[in-house]
Computed example of a mutant assay.
Amino acid sequence: MTPLEVLEYASVAVFALTGALVASRSQLDLVGFIFIACLTAVGGGTLRDLLLGRDPVFWVGRPGFIVVAALAALVVFFSAHLLESRYRALLWLDACALAVAVPVGVGVTIGMGYGPVTVLVMGVATGSFGGLMRDVVCNEVPLLLRQGELYLTAAFCGAGAALAAGALGWPGLPALLACAAVTFGLRAGSLAFGWALPVYKARPPRPDAPKR
Results as ranks from 00 to 15, higher is better:
residue 62 R to W: 11
residue 76 V to L: 13
residue 97 A to Y: 11
residue 94 D to W: 00
residue 134 R to C: 00
residue 139 N to D: 11
residue 50 L to K: 02
residue 38 C to K: 01
residue 23 A to C: 10
residue 53 G to D: 11
residue 134 R to A: 01
residue 113 G to T: 07
residue 18 T to G: 02
residue 190 S to K: 10
residue 42 V to Q: 00
residue 91 L to W: 15
residue 193 F to L: 13
residue 13 A to F: 15
residue 94 D to R: 03
residue 48 R to T: 03
residue 82 L to R: 15
residue 66 I to A: 13
residue 132 L to N: 03
residue 10 A to T: 09
residue 20 A to R: 07
residue 129 F to P: 00
residue 158 G to V: 01
residue 175 A to P: 07
residue 182 V to E: 07
residue 177 L to G: 05
residue 63 P to A: 14
residue 5 E to G: 12
residue 12 V to M: 13
residue 33 F to C: 04
residue 185 G to S: 06
residue 204 P to Q: 14
residue 146 R to V: 14
residue 194 G to A: 08
residue 117 V to S: 11
residue 75 V to I: 15
residue 159 A to P: 03
residue 161 A to I: 04
residue 204 P to G: 13
residue 82 L to I: 13
residue 15 F to N: 03
residue 60 V to I: 14
residue 116 P to Q: 03
residue 62 R to F: 10
residue 41 A to C: 05
residue 118 T to C: 13
residue 178 A to F: 12
residue 12 V to Y: 04
residue 208 D to Q: 12
residue 13 A to D: 03
residue 186 L to H: 04
residue 8 E to K: 11
residue 25 R to F: 01
residue 210 P to M: 06
residue 45 G to R: 02
residue 8 E to H: 15
residue 54 R to I: 07
residue 107 G to W: 13
residue 192 A to P: 04
residue 16 A to G: 03
residue 199 V to D: 12
residue 11 S to V: 01
residue 201 K to H: 15
residue 56 P to F: 09
residue 165 A to D: 09
residue 112 M to I: 11
residue 60 V to E: 03
residue 47 L to C: 07
residue 176 L to K: 03
residue 23 A to H: 04
residue 94 D to A: 01
residue 154 A to T: 05
residue 161 A to K: 02
residue 92 W to I: 07
residue 74 L to M: 11
residue 183 T to S: 08
residue 39 L to G: 00
residue 15 F to C: 04
residue 188 A to H: 14
residue 4 L to S: 02
residue 59 W to Y: 08
residue 13 A to P: 07
residue 196 A to M: 13
residue 56 P to I: 09
residue 76 V to K: 01
residue 135 D to I: 00
residue 64 G to S: 04
residue 201 K to C: 14
residue 76 V to Y: 10
residue 43 G to V: 08
residue 146 R to L: 10
residue 51 L to E: 06
residue 15 F to K: 05
residue 34 I to C: 09
residue 168 L to T: 14
residue 40 T to A: 01
residue 74 L to V: 12
residue 37 A to G: 03
residue 98 L to E: 03
residue 133 M to S: 09
residue 100 V to I: 15
residue 147 Q to F: 05
residue 60 V to F: 08
residue 207 P to Q: 12
residue 82 L to W: 14
residue 98 L to F: 05
residue 194 G to S: 12
residue 193 F to W: 15
residue 206 R to T: 09
residue 59 W to T: 00
residue 48 R to W: 01
residue 193 F to A: 13
residue 175 A to I: 01
residue 116 P to N: 06
residue 69 A to P: 05
residue 58 F to E: 02
residue 86 R to L: 14
residue 145 L to A: 02
residue 2 T to R: 15
